[in-house]
Amino acid sequence: SKIRITWGDKTWEWDGDDEEVWKRILEWARNLGDEELWRHVKEWVDK
């Protein structure tokens, strides 16, 4: 399956939905430097 994140007018996609993928997404969000996006992603990961 895919994980799709839409933020503003951008959309990103990742293949898979296991823990490793979420770790990569969390790292990606942090590297993007958008605090609010990172917080949202972290909330999803922690669920």
Rank of each mutant, 00 (worst) to 15 (best):
1 S>N: 12
47 K>G: 14
42 K>Y: 12
9 D>I: 01
44 W>R: 02
32 L>N: 08
26 L>V: 07
9 D>E: 11
29 A>L: 04
34 D>K: 02
38 W>Y: 15
40 H>N: 12
8 G>Q: 11
30 R>K: 14
37 L>S: 01
12 W>I: 06
18 D>H: 10
29 A>I: 04
30 R>D: 09
8 G>K: 11
40 H>L: 13
34 D>C: 03
37 L>I: 10
9 D>N: 10
12 W>H: 08
28 W>Y: 02
27 E>A: 11
33 G>N: 09
41 V>Q: 00
27 E>H: 09
27 E>T: 09
13 E>T: 09
18 D>W: 07
32 L>D: 08
41 V>D: 00
35 E>V: 06
18 D>K: 06
26 L>R: 05
32 L>H: 15
19 E>R: 11
4 R>H: 12
24 R>I: 13
15 D>F: 09
17 D>M: 06
37 L>C: 03
12 W>A: 05
46 D>M: 03
37 L>R: 00
43 E>C: 12
34 D>T: 03
44 W>H: 04
12 W>D: 01
33 G>T: 05
37 L>E: 01
7 W>M: 05
24 R>P: 03
14 W>D: 01
34 D>N: 12
46 D>K: 05
11 T>L: 06
31 N>D: 12
8 G>W: 07
36 E>S: 07
34 D>A: 08
34 D>W: 08
10 K>H: 12
2 K>S: 15
12 W>V: 05
41 V>H: 00
8 G>A: 09
16 G>H: 13
47 K>E: 13
30 R>I: 11
24 R>D: 12
2 K>R: 09
24 R>E: 11
25 I>R: 00
27 E>Q: 14
27 E>Y: 06
25 I>Q: 00
21 V>F: 03
36 E>C: 03
4 R>M: 13
15 D>C: 02
15 D>E: 13
5 I>F: 15
34 D>Y: 05
32 L>F: 15
22 W>T: 07
20 E>I: 09
23 K>W: 04
5 I>K: 00
19 E>Y: 10
17 D>Q: 09
11 T>R: 04
1 S>D: 10
45 V>I: 08
7 W>A: 02
30 R>Q: 13
38 W>M: 15
45 V>S: 14
31 N>H: 09
41 V>I: 14
43 E>G: 02
42 K>A: 14
3 I>F: 05
14 W>G: 03
7 W>C: 02
38 W>S: 11
34 D>E: 07
11 T>A: 07
20 E>Y: 13
29 A>G: 03
5 I>P: 00
30 R>Y: 14
40 H>T: 13
45 V>M: 15
13 E>M: 05
15 D>V: 09
37 L>V: 07
10 K>S: 12
20 E>T: 13
10 K>N: 12
12 W>S: 03
28 W>G: 00
19 E>F: 11
43 E>D: 15
28 W>D: 01
23 K>C: 03
45 V>Q: 12
27 E>G: 04
17 D>W: 07
30 R>N: 11
10 K>E: 14
2 K>W: 09
7 W>V: 09
15 D>I: 09
5 I>G: 00
39 R>E: 15
36 E>W: 05
26 L>W: 06
12 W>Q: 06
44 W>T: 07
16 G>C: 08
43 E>I: 04
37 L>W: 06
13 E>R: 01
44 W>G: 01
22 W>L: 09
7 W>T: 01
1 S>I: 15
18 D>Q: 08
17 D>H: 10
12 W>R: 03
23 K>Q: 13
30 R>M: 11
21 V>Q: 03
44 W>F: 15
16 G>E: 09
5 I>M: 02
37 L>A: 04
28 W>F: 08
44 W>Q: 09
2 K>V: 13
16 G>A: 15
22 W>I: 11
26 L>Y: 07
22 W>E: 06
33 G>D: 11
3 I>P: 01
6 T>M: 08
2 K>G: 10
8 G>F: 05
6 T>P: 02
37 L>K: 01
27 E>F: 05
40 H>Y: 15
45 V>T: 06
10 K>Q: 13
6 T>F: 07
28 W>T: 02
42 K>N: 15
2 K>P: 12
47 K>T: 14
13 E>W: 07
26 L>A: 07
2 K>M: 12
11 T>F: 09
29 A>T: 03
35 E>W: 05
37 L>F: 14
30 R>E: 15
23 K>L: 08
25 I>V: 10
25 I>F: 03
9 D>K: 04
21 V>A: 04
36 E>N: 09
35 E>S: 08
39 R>T: 12
22 W>K: 09
38 W>A: 10
33 G>W: 04
31 N>S: 12
3 I>K: 02
3 I>G: 01
18 D>C: 01
45 V>L: 11
6 T>D: 06
27 E>S: 08
45 V>P: 03
26 L>S: 06
46 D>A: 04
18 D>V: 08
27 E>D: 12
5 I>R: 00
19 E>H: 13
27 E>K: 06
36 E>D: 12
13 E>F: 07
2 K>Y: 12
3 I>Q: 01
24 R>A: 15
1 S>E: 12
30 R>P: 01
31 N>W: 07
19 E>P: 14
7 W>I: 14
21 V>D: 04
10 K>R: 11
5 I>D: 00
23 K>I: 08
33 G>A: 09
29 A>N: 00
6 T>Q: 10
1 S>W: 07
23 K>G: 09
15 D>Y: 11
13 E>L: 04
35 E>G: 04
16 G>K: 13
14 W>M: 03
39 R>P: 03
10 K>W: 07
21 V>I: 10
17 D>F: 06
38 W>E: 13
38 W>I: 15
3 I>T: 03
37 L>T: 02
47 K>N: 14
17 D>R: 09
33 G>S: 07
7 W>K: 03
37 L>Y: 04
29 A>F: 06
1 S>F: 10
44 W>N: 01
41 V>W: 02
47 K>Q: 15
30 R>W: 12
28 W>R: 00
33 G>Q: 08
43 E>N: 06
4 R>V: 15
21 V>N: 06
11 T>E: 06
9 D>Q: 09
32 L>T: 15
1 S>K: 15
26 L>N: 02
4 R>Y: 13
7 W>Q: 02
24 R>T: 10
29 A>P: 00
11 T>I: 10
14 W>R: 00
40 H>D: 13
28 W>E: 02
43 E>L: 04
7 W>R: 03
14 W>C: 02
25 I>P: 00
3 I>V: 10
42 K>G: 07
28 W>S: 01
9 D>C: 08
28 W>K: 01
21 V>T: 14
31 N>C: 06
18 D>E: 11
21 V>P: 04
5 I>Q: 00
26 L>K: 08
41 V>R: 00
39 R>F: 12
